[in-house]
Simulated scan of single mutants.
Amino acid sequence: MKLLKRYKNKIIPIILLLILFLIVLIYLCNDSINSVANIIIISFILSYLISPARDFIEYRFKIKKTTASLLIIIGILSLIITCVVIIIPELVKEVSNIGVIFDNIAEFLDSISGRFKMINFPALNSIYNEILEKGNIIFLNFSKSIINNFILITENIISCAILPVVVYYFLCDGEKIYNKILLILPTEKRALTKRILNDIDKVLGRYIASQIFLSVIIGCMTFILLIIFKVKFPVWISLLNAILNIIPYFGPIFGGIPAVIVAFLDSPIKAFWVACGIFIIQQIEGNILSPKITGDSTDMHPIVIIILLLIGDKFGGFIGMVLAVPIGVVIKVLYDDINYYLF
């Protein structure tokens, strides 16, 4: 018994690490646990993202946290329903015209083939046929992806319905849950843990807010550019550019390519001017908006960010690239705080 008390501070962390390892193992191996855990994780992330809006409503209108949480959930659901009613039909209409783009590509390639008489050059003719085949494969994969995503959303409709409820409880009782989890730790470690978590919350909150604000601005600027030059699918391309802009460095490049390609199908001159417009937007974002809005929220060297993005892409694709920098920010704050408080 004396021996147990003596090594209590060492045994508890080991037990906690073993429990954490077991939870991760079960999450990876059991599909049922995986789906439940995903709902909790997604709900936590969403509640964390919208908690500043809840705090603002609570403070501004002097109402209870439960009322503010309910209002923010109702507001977001209303916004989603409005988008579904107004925007989705337009997006469906634009998607139905995707086949026209591929027809234009085929016609363009046919004209190039006829102009340069590629049939007389077996190597060029082979490349031409390969391009057509790859184009058909891309179109088929795109169609399958839309169908599969629709089926996936239909299959997970119950999970989607549960999400707002779980988010609501996280918004209302997040602080209570946070304090209960802290009780697991030894008393002398709780104050330090709170301090470190508060530091993470400040830095991560600033980074997320700045990136969302920046993405909204870039999406609006892209939409205006596409409307001016009458480029097809302005809503799709603007949304894509805004979402991809969340990824530092690579996002603006990935987001600008679809706009130029779609404009090129109408006219090479139009593609040139759209490319110039996208380049100007990227310069404004990279040299003016990003430094002012994002500032030094990450305080990491660009090489470190690029490495994080490459690792994120390797392990999680697009989602991995989106999460790579926030995870890097958390690790950096942990490292700095542990160095400061413990050493």
Rank of each mutant, 00 (worst) to 15 (best):
I40W: 04
I40M: 08
I40A: 08
I40K: 03
I41L: 11
I41W: 05
I41Q: 08
I41D: 04
I41N: 10
I42D: 09
I42M: 14
I42A: 13
S43R: 00
S43W: 05
S43M: 07
F44P: 02
F44W: 14
F44M: 13
F44R: 02
I45H: 05
I45M: 08
I45S: 10
L46G: 03
L46D: 06
L46N: 11
S47N: 07
Y48T: 15
Y48I: 09
Y48H: 10
Y48Q: 06
L49P: 13
L49M: 13
L49Q: 07
I50A: 01
I50Y: 08
I50W: 08
I50C: 02
I50S: 05
I50P: 10
S51P: 04
S51F: 14
P52D: 12
P52H: 13
P52L: 09
P52A: 13
P52T: 15
A53H: 14
A53I: 12
A53N: 08
A53G: 06
R54W: 05
R54C: 12
R54G: 04
R54E: 14
D55W: 11
D55Y: 15
F56Y: 14
F56K: 10
F56T: 08
F56V: 06
F56M: 04
I57F: 10
I57T: 09
I57D: 01
I57M: 04
I57S: 02
I57E: 00
I57K: 01
I57Q: 00
E58Q: 09
E58K: 04
E58H: 08
E58S: 05
Y59C: 14
Y59F: 10
Y59K: 14
Y59E: 15
Y59I: 13
Y59R: 15
R60P: 02
R60H: 08
R60W: 08
F61M: 02
K62C: 05
K62F: 14
K62A: 11
K62Q: 09
K62R: 12
K62E: 10
K62Y: 12
I63N: 01
I63V: 12
I63F: 08
K64G: 15
K64V: 03
K65S: 12
K65H: 09
T66W: 09
T66K: 04
T66L: 07
T66H: 07
T67H: 05
T67N: 05
A68E: 00
A68L: 00
A68K: 01
A68S: 12
S69G: 12
S69H: 01
S69K: 00
S69E: 00
S69T: 04
S69N: 04
L70G: 06
L70E: 01
L70A: 07
L70I: 06
L70R: 03
L71Q: 09
L71I: 14
L71F: 13
L71G: 10
I72C: 03
I73Q: 07
I73P: 08
I73M: 02
I73D: 06
I73E: 01
I74V: 03
G75A: 11
G75M: 04
